[in-house]
Write a protein that binds this DNA or RNA. Structure first.
Lengths: 227, 227
DNA sequence: CGCCCCTTTGAAGCATATCAAACCGCGTGG
DNA sequence: CCACGCGGTTTGATATGCTTCAAAGGGGCG
């Protein structure tokens, strides 16, 4: 039943170390962000690149009236904050206490010519693009249960630990990622739980056991690509 | 009233010629696609790069039951089909009769080291990513009228001709781009027309006159970034 | 000229949002 | 150590925005 875990192989570009990104070792600092603090803001200047050591980060955009769309969750190993321009396209906040390694942005400009740096950065950006496009399909055309099922499958694939899936984010975060309200997320989870696709570990609603990955995937059966 | 047109300046990366992309002149063929024909399919091999000379193209993904999400519309000047991997992430079809210039994909691999090629390709991909992220916000968090207003503003900015906005795509295409049904698009258009933000040129519903760009933009007032 | 596709508009239905209440675990301070 | 407060989650009732279904009109192209 853990077969799906095999999909882990390919997506681990981000597990390249940050200091490899520039094609050679560069010095990285470490920094710790408390739960809920901003790492950088939309339209803020791009100063650093980040790689998560522990914790979790949400990257999001806001409308002026407060509606929020989370573009991506960044988990341990993920590199984020890579920009072509001088300003960030979205904001980033620590979801829980998070330790990041960071390095000055301009290492990419200075060493951006070396072949490996080019390849690495391009792969990073195209991976982001692929994810964004897959997510557009989800946001525009999937039902609430399909969205939540797809989300859980994604988190399962990305999680390193087999067994329980520990979600660092709230239902509201998940909703803002999937284009739903927190209540709709909760209802979809309950539905998936009721039908035996998953169960909750202990009394925490953040720790989920995927009882039947096949059944879970069927709730999102219309998806062409699993990645 | 045409002040907004000034925004044209920045987005014209794609108006770089295709043969500049690789950093030097390469030979380009020309090809004509009839209305509705496929240019390449999702998961098909990446053989060429394309630049639109005349016409319009839709790039889209499908769910297995036929639900469609259009990722982007490609208009004259736009370069598309650029991939890092060997297979396409989405399908592309000509919306109307379309002439493209095309060149073998591997010119990027061969000449991918030259500084200008790197810069050009990176800019191309990050522009796509920026667009995708903006669109995720739209898909996940905007209402139907906001979506349609944002769409019209986008098309207006991208259109070269001032005056009437000539839309090559159907209401269904627009709906599949915005995560709506064709009827919802039609209703939103009617609403915008009724309140005087736009009117239809002649009796064609594809030719639109933006009577009041300011009013139109207000229907999408919550958007932070105009791009 | 005629057919077909596109668009509009109305009526009804449904999925998700909104509003509301209760429960729970957890951290804090008494 | 316990009471309390608070953020997070679930669940129910109701509301609503968008979809679905349906019909009619119009325009363009063969």
């Amino acid at each position: 039943m853990l077969v799906l875990k095999g999909k882990n192989q390919e997506r681990r570009t981000s597990s390249k170390e940050l200091d490899e990104l520039a094609g050679h070792a560069v010095k990285c600092s470490e920094f710790k962000y408390a739960r809920g603090t901003e790492i950088f803001g939309e339209k803020g200047p791009v100063e650093y690149l980040y790689q998560i050591k522990t914790g979790a980060v949400r990257g999001y955009k806001l409308l002026t009236d407060g509606r929020r769309q989370i573009m991506a969750f960044h988990l341990p190993g993920d590199i984020f904050g890579v920009e072509n321009s001088a300003v960030h396209r979205y904001s980033a906040e620590a979801i829980v206490e998070t330790t990041v390694r960071l390095t000055k942005r301009h290492v990419l400009d200075e060493n951006g010519d070396s072949a490996s740096a080019v390849t690495n950065v391009r792969k990073l950006v195209t991976d982001n693009l692929r994810h964004a496009e897959t997510h557009m399909l989800l946001l525009g055309r999937k039902t609430s249960v399909e969205k939540v099922a797809a989300f859980l499958v994604e988190m399962d694939i990305r999680s390193t630990a087999a067994g329980v899936l520990k979600l660092p984010m709230t239902r509201r975060d998940i909703g803002d990622y999937l284009g739903l309200t927190l209540e709709s997320v909760s209802r979809a989870m309950s539905q998936l739980s009721r039908c035996g696709a998953l169960s909750f570990s202990g009394r925490s609603q953040r720790q989920i056991i995927l009882q039947d990955r096949e059944k879970l995937a069927k709730f999102d059966y219309c998806t062409n690509d699993r990645l």
